[in-house]
Amino acid sequence: MLKKTSGEASMKTDIFAPVSRRAAFTLVELLVVIAIIGILIGLLLPAVQQAREASRRMQCSNNLKQLALAAHNYESTYKTFPYPAEDSSYGYSAQSKMLPFLEQGNLQDQLDFSQPLMIGVSYLKTLNPIYDNLVGMKINVLICPSDPGDPLYVDDDITWAGGNYMVNAGPGVGVQYCSTSDTGGIFWRGSATRFQDITDGATHTILLAETLFGARLNSTELLDAQTQMRSTSGGGSPCSTAADDLDARSVTSYDGRRAGQWLRNLTYQSFINGYFPPNSPSPDILYHGDAVMGARSAHPGGVMVSFADGSVRVVSETVDLSTWRNLHARNDGAVLGEF
């Protein structure tokens, strides 16, 4: 009788040895892990959004700083701040005059300020065709990355590009919203303001402020007070009705064209005034082509402004209204409160 070798015995033992199974997650365990991951993402997302907003806010601040320095360099070169064209609302904006000082010399070379921006008769004027390929050009330094709105605006089948940064056209009280004459601010149509004209001090006078792009539609309902202007009922000739009276009138419709043409000196395309506080719950007022136009921002809690000394800061939307209006006046001699 043959004996089994030790190797054969060992092999037989191995064959019948219990097979160990690989451990696996149960359904409950998987659900717990997914829930934990969801909680972590929920905790992380606000931090990511805050970081992104901080970056956008810094870019917005840098844009305002560049624009303020461009205005300074313009004033140093031409002995006056860049001035909007005098020809009503159909001329060039102050922002367009700053282009050479914003490293936009090539774009500036395509502008001929001796030529009219708009041609035609009265309110039937349309864009000079030499600018057909220029007006829709978006300029990054004029756009705040926090604004989710559309910088492009279509008017009479022409696509214009807008900008978020408006020049200070005064306190806006009384008829100072009317940009055809001295508004008490630094800019109006045909203005030629110099540093020495800012007797309240460059550190206490706003040069530019941010606002939001329009809703790009007209409606009979208020959809968003921050991006629409209201047209009011009642008559009166241009520059004849005080802002307080306009503010009290009933509304006929809402307009979304604001901040849609960086090249043009139309009030609601290039000017800002201090009648409304920052991020006012009341929409701006459109009146005969002029506007009671407020500073508005997508940044939480306030709006960003650059002062005439070149400094940039956020002014809270809870700022005292009198102080806010005084910051838009270059020479009212008022003592300012905290801002």
Score class of each variant (00 low, 15 high):
Pro171Gly: 01
Glu210Ile: 00
Asn164Lys: 12
Gly136Gln: 01
Val135Pro: 02
Glu221Asp: 13
Asn168Phe: 08
Arg194Asn: 13
Glu221Val: 09
Phe195Cys: 01
Asp200Asn: 15
Ser179His: 06
Asp156Arg: 15
Ile139Glu: 10
Ile158Pro: 06
Gly172Trp: 02
Ser191Gln: 10
Asn164Leu: 03
His204Glu: 04
Ser179Ile: 03
Ala209Thr: 09
Thr180Gln: 12
Gly136Ile: 05
Gly201Tyr: 06
Val135Asn: 05
Met166Lys: 15
Ala161Ser: 15
Asp147Arg: 12
Leu222Asp: 14
Pro151Gly: 03
Phe187Lys: 06
Glu221Ser: 14
Gln176Asp: 13
Gly162Met: 11
Leu152Lys: 06
Tyr165Gly: 08
Met137Ala: 11
Val154Pro: 00
Leu142Asp: 05
Ile198Arg: 04
Val167Asn: 04
Phe195Leu: 08
Gly174Ile: 04
Ile198Val: 15
Ile186Cys: 08
Ala169Lys: 05
Thr203Trp: 00
Asp156Ile: 03
Gly185Gln: 07
Lys138Pro: 13
Gly184His: 11
Ile198Pro: 12
Phe213Pro: 07
Leu212Val: 13
Thr159Leu: 08
Asp157Glu: 14
Thr193Pro: 07
Thr180Ile: 09
Leu217Gln: 14
Gly174Lys: 01
Val173Lys: 05
Gly190Phe: 08
Leu152Arg: 06
Thr193Leu: 05
Ala209His: 05
Val141Ser: 13
Gly190Asn: 09
Ala169Ser: 15
Pro145Tyr: 05
Ser146Thr: 09
Ile143His: 10
Asp155Ile: 11
Asn168Glu: 03
Val154Ala: 07
Tyr177Phe: 12
Val141Tyr: 07
Asp147Val: 07
Asn164Thr: 08
Pro151Arg: 00
Thr199Asn: 07
Ala192Gly: 14
Glu210Lys: 02
Val173Cys: 02
Asp182Ile: 01
Gly163Ile: 09
Gly190Val: 12
Ser146Gln: 06
Ser219Gly: 08
Gln196Ile: 07
Ala209Gly: 15
Met166Arg: 10
Val154Glu: 12
Thr203Cys: 00
Gly185Ala: 12
Val173Asp: 14
His204Thr: 12
Asn218Cys: 06
Trp188Pro: 09
Trp160Gln: 13
Val173Phe: 01
Asn164Trp: 03
Ala215His: 11
Arg216Thr: 14
Phe187Gln: 11
Thr220Cys: 02
Thr159Met: 12
Leu223Arg: 09
Gly136His: 04
Ser191Tyr: 05
Asn133Lys: 12
Thr159Asp: 07
Ala192Asp: 13
Asp156Gln: 13
Asn218Glu: 15
Asp157Ser: 15
Thr205Gln: 01
Met166Phe: 15
Gly149Gln: 11
Asn133Trp: 00
Gly214Met: 11
Thr180Ala: 14
Gly174Phe: 00
Phe187Val: 03
Gln176Ala: 07
Asp156Thr: 14
Ala209Asn: 02
